[in-house]
Amino acid sequence: MTPTEIAVAVLIAGGVFFTFVAGVGLLRLPDVYTRTHSASKSDTLGAGLALAAVAVTFGADLPTVKAALLVLFMFVTNPTAAHAIARAAADQGIEPWTVDDDESGGGNE
């Protein structure tokens, strides 16, 4: 394997790992707010690493610029969407889950 291929493999593996963590978090975490944490953030890094792998594959070429722009837009839109979800939840009066709920409610996991 050339150094480029190794770099691409590492980046892809990282991307897959963080996307996987996002999925696990979505299943394990207790309420809408904590799940939004997982779904929006780990995902950003996962997709970011995947796009970084794309950039490394193409080298100094136009697709790299486009991949960089994609990352940029994702970093602007992803937190905005997460914020919109959290704010909508707060506007609906959904109370955030706390550790106390778990003790009284007998645990979710």
Binding site: Y33, T36, H37, K41, S42, P79, A82, H83, A86
Partner: peptide, 11 residues
């Protein structure tokens, strides 16, 4: 703040 995992801006 939202991008940094662990914190999420609600309002």
């Amino acid at each position: 703040i939202t991008l940094t995992p662990g914190t999420l801006t609600v309002d």
